[in-house]
Each structure stands twice: as structure tokens, then as C-alpha cells.
Amino acid sequence: MTTTATEERSEPVLDGVCAPGFEGVRELLRHNLETGVELGASLCVMSGEEVVVDLWGGTADAASGRPWTRDTVVNTYSITKTMTALAALVLVDRGLLDPDAPVAEYWPEFAAAGKQTVLVRHVLGHTSGLSGWDERMRVEDLYDTPSAADLLARQAPWWTPGASSGYHAMSFGTLVGELVRRITGVSLGQFFAAEVAVPLGADYWIGAPESLLAQPERIATLVPPPPTGFDYASLPTDSLMLRTLTNPAFAPALTTDPGFLAAELGAANGQGNARSVALVQSVITCGGTVGGRRFAAPETVGRIFEVQADGRDPVLGAHVRFGLGWALPSPSMPGVPAGRACWWTGFGGSVVVADLDRNLTIAYVMNKMGPQLVGSARANRYLDAVYGR
């Protein structure tokens, strides 16, 4: 039984739908809202194209007490990368982007500084050697995406491309976004909206439109994670973790700033909720076709599972197996089962899984952040609840 915002309750409201067999998911989310583990959150599970769990509740803004409603959206941090990767996959399916071609085939200036052999799949698999910028960057510098991309085109790789992964925390969106722009003539956010989100009816945006900016009450406010005690300044100056994760760095408070919301940061500023995240990523679960519309062929979707790197990622400090644009089942995320499943997470704990073997798409987003970049215990518990473990 779900509750509504009109009922008098002392504990946070949980609303939505939950099909039989998924009661454990609802009760876990309810418990986390009631005990303060969560402030506000949404969770969605799709079986094929059918929504079997669509839950939301709690508080969207701690200062005002504004409730988290059905249409609340929130910054999803790096879940945005799965949307950017899907935009690239659509181009792959259309024969406009070849994962095995040099990046410079589409972006000639990229061949500078010895990068003529860097392949598209190196970018999609976080192995290009360009996990960050040589230049000192502010996050506002990334709003001008062509200029930020030009800086990456000029610099030399930080390691041998293809040799190993180094998580492209912010550069992933800049690099893939520039490929999309070079091929289509429109920006990443425009292409994603026109070719993916709008046809699906998904309330997810890479670059918030005026209609969303005019409704700030729809946008949840993030609660920063507790300090971990980790001191980045203690790392060597040539550390990939230091160079990637602190240049640029930005506070969660920036994610409700209109300039940030309107920017098209394909690595980290997508706005959505669990329902819209699951709907978009169900394209992968369903083999490329949703609602009778083909976004990619099953063979194209299958390319996601081509392993690009498998080992300890020096930027994340965790063992991750990267496929083509998504992560694959990895020790760092035990809640993702073995088999044909792909996933990624957002800073603070959000997660999305497209599980082709079990025909499930699972998405969870929230505003009370945990400290992990990858491997959130909270997210893993929700995945365990979905899978009945």
C-alpha cells in the first residue's frame, strides 16, 4: 500500500506503484526515508517496457521542506555518461561513428600531440589517456564545450591509449560531445533530446531547457556527502586521481545554479529522476527498440559488452570492467549480477543498471549524497532488494 501527500504522517511520504514481488524494494526505500538514511529519492524498475516499480518520496529541499514529488528531478552526476554513451551508440548504429576508427577521422585537430592512433573506443572505454586537462580548469570553463574540447585536442595523452582505463570523470562528456557535434552539426544536448529523450517521452535533460529553468520547484537540492578525511593534496603531483578529480572540482551546491543547469556537460550534469533514467536506459535492456521505435540494432547494443579495460582504475581507485560506454559487472559494484548487464553510477550513490539477461532496467537517484565515487553500499542494497538477494 502506498501513501499520498494528502495523508497526515509524521514520517516522510512514500508514493508511487510497486508490483507484487518487489515489496522488499518499497520497504527498503520506506525504511531509509523514515530513518534518515535518505532525504529524498526515487527508484524505478522496468521489466522490458513495463514499469513494475516507480517510487518516490521524502524531501526535495532540506531548507524549505519542499517534498519530493512524482516530477522532481535532480542532478544525476555521472549517470549522465550513460546518456552520452547512448547518443554515441545511436550514431554507431546509423553508420556515422565507428568505434574502431581514429577519433581524428571525425575531428582532424585531435590528431595533434601524437593522438592520431587514439580510437573512438578508447574514448568510450576511458582508455584514451585524456582523463583530464593539462590546463587549469574551472567548471565554468567546460560550459564552452568546443573550447574545452579544443584544449583536449591539443594535449598529449597521459598514458598509452588503450593500455588501461583512467576514468574520464569530466572529459568523457567533452570528448564524446565533440564527436557528436562534429558528426551531426548540433550539440550533444540537442542531439540527445531530439533523437532519444523526446521520442521516448523521457524527462531527462543534458542542458536544462527554459521550461525546466522556469520551474525551480521541480529541482531537488543536493545534500553534500560527509567528509571522507581523504586529502587529495597528499597525492603526488603526477597522480592521475589528483589531476583528474580536482581539475575541475565543483561543490554540489552549484548543481541548482541556472548556468550550470543550462550547460551541456555530458559527463556530469544531466537532470532527471529514476523514471526517466530507467526509461532511457531501457533502450539497452530491450535490445535497441522501445515503443516501436528503433534506436539501435541488437548487434549494436551488443558492442557495449566488448571489454575495453578490466582492472584497478587509478582515477577511481577501484576495480572496474569497462565496456563500450558503460561499465560491466565488476568487483566494485557487487549488486550488479554477472552476465549481460551494464551499469554506471553517479557521485553520491545513484545508479542505473540495464540487465539484458533478466530483462530488467533499474534506476535509483537521490539528493542525500554518500561519499563514494563508485560502489555505494546504499545503491548495492537497493539492487539486492530488486534481485531478491
Rank of each mutant, 00 (worst) to 15 (best):
E50F: 06
V307L: 03
A41Q: 00
D100W: 06
Y204C: 13
A87E: 00
F250I: 03
W158N: 03
A262V: 09
R243K: 11
L265R: 01
P337R: 15
A88F: 05
A253D: 15
L152Y: 06
G259I: 14
V196T: 11
V386E: 02
L29C: 15
S128Y: 03
M366I: 13
V52N: 11
P146C: 05
G58F: 02
K368T: 03
Y106N: 04
M333K: 00
G270Q: 11
F192E: 04
C286A: 12
L55D: 13
Q271K: 15
V301E: 08
P337L: 12
S147P: 02
D357N: 12
L200P: 03
L188H: 02
A249M: 05
T160P: 07
P337E: 04
R218C: 10
V352T: 05
R66S: 07
D355Q: 07
T256H: 12
L175S: 06
V53A: 10
N380Q: 14
R138G: 10
S211Q: 14
A87Q: 05
I284C: 07
F192C: 07
M170P: 01
S350K: 00
T76R: 02
R293W: 00
A41S: 15
T246V: 02
G36V: 14
T160N: 08
D141R: 09
T117K: 07
D144N: 12
M1T: 08
D150F: 08
G162P: 10
R138S: 10
H319I: 05
N380P: 03
L383P: 00
W344V: 01
T82L: 10
L328N: 13
F347W: 09
P298W: 08
G24T: 15
R378Q: 14
G317C: 07
A208L: 04
G292C: 08
L212W: 13
L43Q: 08
M333P: 00
S164W: 09
G346H: 03
C286D: 01
D203H: 12
L119Y: 07
V51L: 10
A379D: 05
D134P: 01
E195H: 10
P371L: 04
N273F: 11
